[in-house]
Design a protein around this nucleic acid. Structure first.
Length: 424
RNA sequence: GGAGGGUUAGCAUAAUUGGUAAUGCACCGGUCUUGAAAACCGGCGGCUUCGGCCUUGAGGGUUCGAGUCCCUCACCCUCCGCCA
């Protein structure tokens, strides 16, 4: 949520920031709505003040057993006047709120300018891209041959963009989930959370998916429940409408949940395989921090996600999203992109963002260190997207005979298995 | 699903027939003190055009006036029923 006072006091800064995002806004209209709202509210308050005075008089007279009919008559008249004013003021407030809720976060100064994905800035690379002396297969071929993912039955049970993992495929997902959770809880100091997968409208608005992006979400009919598109939603909302104490910060949570996405508008994109599906597993990292420490915490969070890829021996690069590619709520985002051999390119496997006080303002998450409560900063990042990690492992560790080597760090979680054997 | 009880500031607790939210703890500032504690004084939810306005789970209604009465909804607790 945007702070209207920032727009009032520094419209040029806001204008420049939104241009960087490639999402120019009509600040004059906003300021006009704000002015309208302020004068309407002021007018209404003046009338209220009269009302309160008269009301006091009535109470006083009644106490003294005096007649108050004249004042009551006056009050009735004021009431009629105020009904209309009240409506105007409320409408103006709603108008402004609607606009403010639809404004994206301000990008940080360090975010590179740019229109889209092509303008993102590569920060660093890690690991060696594997070379194969045979024709590489994509994860769909590999998985089907191994009998560990059944795409057609996934489609039969539910529809397109749903997968059914079986045997070692299901085991591999479970192993990855446990592996990631163990590292983040034991090595990186995150508290494990297992949140609800259905959340109410207030929660989805708190993290910024609503009201603008309802089309990306699944909604349960006849209820106020939405399927979570990421654990970010329930976990960030753990502290909605709360005031934390300074000693509570920073707070680290890690959660594994399935994620549900409608993928509206992605027709024709990644239609094959498990890169883009309606339901996938993800281990998510969420942080609540003080404003002054959030940038440092973003670097640490990103490093925590990278550590998983390093342990798995998967080559990746870190990319800083440019203004035009930045998500609605984020002030800055690093994407981790893992090497996908069959596509001969890097693909997103984690997205680590600092939301500054944007979500905290919407969800009313504060902390107290002096007199006044202040908004916390929230951050989150995938640590990692499990389905895409499976894709990366299958493709990067494939062997000519169709078998797939299990990365060493993962073997304890696979009952000691070192290779998913080829089917004969 | 049924019956009953509840939701007031960071926390905890008040508020005759409807008369305009009181108090304690915690916290912050001050006085006092070598320093601290205690005591005392002030502050202690949001907004403000500094006149004020708003705030008792949410939204409506009745009324000149609602924490209080009525309706709808959410959540919590207890019991009954059903259930993995």
């Amino acid at each position: 949520m945007f702070d209207i006072r920032l727009i009032r006091s520094n419209p040029e800064l806001v204008r420049a920031a939104m241009e960087k995002r490639n999402a120019p806004v009509d600040l004059d209209t906003i300021l006009a709505v704000d002015a309208r709202r302020r004068s309407a509210v002021y007018e209404m308050e003046q009338l209220r003040a009269r009302q309160n005075k008269a009301s006091e008089t009535i109470a006083q007279r009644k106490k003294n057993n005096e007649n108050a009919d004249d004042v009551i008559a006056e009050m009735k008249q004021i009431k009629e006047e105020s009904a209309n004013l009240d409506l105007i003021a409320k409408q103006a407030e709603e108008d402004l709120e609607e606009i403010l809720l639809s404004l994206p976060n301000l990008p940080d100064e360090s975010v590179p300018a740019g229109k889209n994905e092509a303008d993102n800035q590569e920060i660093r690379r890690w690991g060696e891209i594997p070379s194969f002396n045979f024709e590489v297969r994509d994860h769909v071929d590999i998985a089907e041959k191994l009998g560990i993912v059944d795409f057609s039955r996934g489609a039969k049970i539910s529809g397109a963009r749903f997968t059914l993992s079986l045997g070692y495929g299901a085991r591999l997902e479970r192993a990855l989930i446990n592996f990631m959770l163990d590292i983040h809880t034991q090595k990186h100091g995150y508290q494990e959370a297992l949140p609800p997968f259905l959340v109410n409208t207030a929660s989805v608005q708190g993290t910024g998916q609503l009201p603008k992006f309802s089309a990306d979400l699944f909604k349960i009919d006849n209820t106020d429940y939405w399927l979570i598109p990421t654990a970010e939603v329930p976990v960030t909302n753990i502290h909605r409408d709360e005031i934390l104490s300074l000693e509570d910060l920073p707070k680290y949570y890690v959660a594994h949940t399935p994620c549900f996405r409608s993928e509206a508008g992605s027709y024709g994109k990644d239609t094959r395989g498990m890169i883009r599906v309606h339901q996938f597993n993800k281990v998510e990292l969420v942080k609540f921090t003080t404003p002054e420490s959030s940038w440092e915490e973003l670097e640490k969070l990103t490093a925590n996600a990278e550590y998983i890829l390093q342990q798995l021996g998967l080559a990746y690069r870190v990319v800083c999203l440019c203004g035009g590619d930045l998500g609605f709520s984020a002030a800055k985002t690093y994407d981790l992109e893992v090497w996908v051999p069959a596509q001969n390119t890097y693909r997103e496997i984690s997205s680590c963002s600092n939301f500054t006080d944007f979500q905290a303002r919407r969800a009313n998450i504060r902390f107290k260190r002096d007199k006044k409560p202040e908004f916390v900063h929230t951050l989150n990042g995938s640590g990692l997207a499990v389905g895409r990690t499976v894709v990366a492992i299958l493709e990067n560790y494939q062997q000519e005979d169709g078998s797939v080597i299990i990365p060493e760090a993962l073997r304890p979680y696979m009952g000691g298995l070192s290779v998913i054997p080829a089917q004969t």
